[in-house]
Amino acid sequence: MNTIRTDIRRGSLITAVLALLCSAFLILPANAEPDPFEDCAQGAFCLYDGSGGTGTRLDVPEGGKDEQYTGTALSVQNNTRMWACVYTTGHYGGSLQTVKPGNDDEYVTDGTRWVVASYKLVPTRALCFTGYERCENGQVCAFAERNGRGAMTVHVPAVDPATQNLGNSYGAETAPKSVWNRTAKHLCFYPRPDYTGTWTEGTTTYGAYVVLRGDSITVPASLAGAFRSHELVNGTSECQ
């Protein structure tokens, strides 16, 4: 009798263990969903055309950039060591979002999409607020927005046949809001296309607006959009 009772107890114990194991397996999901953004590799800035790191993914290497992004980005993951700068218009213009290294971001809230039209990866967050780095040595670069942001126009100096000024004349549609003078000469700006004119503020009248060699500036609000021509000179006394 004792032997029979022992066998029955062992059989009951084995059955209970098997039942417990089966119930444990039953509560595990058959196909666990991946965590959001977990498919973004280290060293990459990933743009997804779906919210929450879903949909088609674009991988951008560290230091990558695109001034005219035409894809759709509703979420991003920044797995680089750099800051990601994301803009609503091309050429690093419009509104700005910054994504810290290791962070993600969403660009659709309550059904409203925040358009991503350009982006760049930079060493510090401060560099997200400027775009001067696009101007190369030896160039005069004019920008459509403050701090070197927005569309950039490179002015190749030419000698005006009538005035013999070494510079450029242009219309209101290209009047800069910020400038970098990366030439070896000083830069003189004028309110008229023929390298003449003055500005008046209060009781003071000003001649040319000067940007020294190597300097970058954001045009003062009172003069924004007012420049119509500029010339390059060896000394500021040569400004008209």
Rank of each mutant, 00 (worst) to 15 (best):
N2M: 10
I4R: 15
R5S: 11
D7M: 14
R10P: 00
S12W: 06
S12D: 00
S12A: 15
L13N: 03
L20Q: 02
L21G: 10
C22H: 04
A24G: 12
F25N: 10
L26A: 15
L26C: 10
L28I: 12
P29A: 07
P29L: 03
E38H: 03
C40S: 12
Q42W: 02
A44Y: 12
G52T: 06
G52D: 10
T56L: 08
R57F: 03
D59N: 14
V60G: 02
G63K: 08
K65F: 14
Q68A: 12
Y69P: 08
G71E: 04
S75D: 07
Q77T: 04
N78S: 06
N79P: 00
T80Y: 00
T80S: 02
T80E: 00
T88A: 12
T88L: 06
H91C: 02
H91M: 05
G94N: 07
S95C: 03
T98H: 11
T98Q: 12
K100Y: 14
G102I: 12
D110I: 00
R113V: 15
R113Y: 12
V115D: 13
V115Y: 11
V116R: 04
S118D: 03
K120P: 07
C128A: 10
T130R: 09
G131I: 13
C135T: 09
Q139I: 05
C141L: 05
C141F: 04
A142N: 06
M152F: 08
M152W: 05
V154G: 03
V154D: 01
V154Q: 09
H155V: 02
P157N: 04
V159W: 09
D160K: 03
P161M: 08
Q164P: 02
G167R: 09
P176T: 01
S178W: 05
T183I: 09
A184C: 00
A184R: 14
A184G: 05
K185Q: 15
Y190A: 07
P191G: 01
P191L: 03
P191W: 01
R192G: 01
Y195S: 06
Y195E: 05
T198F: 05
T200Y: 05
T204L: 06
Y206V: 08
Y206N: 07
A208C: 03
A208M: 02
Y209F: 15
L212K: 15
L212H: 13
R213K: 15
G214S: 05
G214E: 02
D215F: 13
I217K: 14
I217T: 14
A221Q: 13
S222M: 11
L223I: 00
A224P: 01
A224T: 13
S229G: 02
E231H: 06
V233K: 13
N234Y: 11
N234M: 00
G235R: 13
G235F: 10
G235K: 12
T236R: 09
C239M: 02
Q240L: 09
